[in-house]
């Protein structure tokens, strides 16, 4: 007779309600050669309290402690990540339109000022006057034939870099910005796993 064995693959991140009792099937995918998998999935692992505030981490080891107590004869194998991040959203936060508009204005005015300062910093006016002279043989104060396409190209270049043409895309690959946002989120998760983990707090003493 083969031994009773379950495989548990922890989820990376879950969202839970305030004061929810988190069960095994909330935080993991389970499979195994036993008949009572459903019962196993209902095993309570962790009670969310006020002290958790809006984020908590359940370590795979904590889970094993509970499981070993409940089913001493069961052999458990943990797969995948070792921690689950539990997010407890306060209420669905609604971002107000005025704030978005304000940020929008800030970014818009800010980048307009930044580009003007950049142009002065690199003496672009003089360089463009020089180039205009080289290309046409005429000396003008405002080489607008050069400068207006330049200004439009400025926006095009940024869109090209971020791979966004309003809703349309040039191809399926993620834009550098999306990768950047993803990396940042991953760094945050990594930090939370380290600092919100109850096990790590005990070790340090």
């Amino acid at each position: 007779m083969s031994e009773d064995k379950v495989y548990i693959r922890l989820k990376k991140k879950i969202t839970a309600k305030q004061n929810q009792y988190i069960t095994l099937k909330d935080i993991a995918f389970i499979t195994g050669n036993i008949e009572y998998l459903d019962e196993l999935g209902a095993v309570p692992i962790y009670q969310i309290t006020e002290a958790d505030k809006n984020i908590s981490v359940i370590d795979g080891f904590q889970l094993l402690e509970v499981m070993v107590q409940a089913y001493p004869l069961l052999s458990i194998e943990l797969l995948g990540t070792n921690q689950v991040i539990v997010e407890i959203p306060k209420q669905a936060k609604k971002v107000s339109v005025p704030i978005i508009f304000l940020i929008w204005l800030l970014m818009c005015v800010g980048s307009a000022m930044a580009i003007m300062n950049f142009h002065y910093d690199v003496s672009m006016q003089e360089v463009q006057q020089g180039i205009y002279y080289l290309l046409t043989g005429e000396r003008v104060n405002k080489p607008l034939w050069l400068q207006i396409p330049y200004s439009i190209g400025l926006g095009l270049g940024m869109i090209l870099f971020f791979n966004h043409l309003f809703k349309k895309r040039f191809n399926e690959e993620p834009s550098p910005l999306e990768i950047e946002v993803f990396n940042y989120q991953q760094d945050l998760d990594q930090y939370v796993i380290q600092h919100e983990n109850a096990l790590n707090k005990h070790d340090d003493s």
Binding site: S111, A114, I115, F118, Q128, I131, Y132, L135, T136, P143, W145, L146, Q147, I148, P149, Y150, S151, I152, G153, L154, G155, L156, G157, M158, I159, L160, F161, F162
Partner: peptide, 18 residues
Amino acid sequence: LVSFWGLLHGVFIGMLAA
């Protein structure tokens, strides 16, 4: 052609800024 030159210049600086 001068305008085309300006456009290329703009696209390049735009990518730089982005």
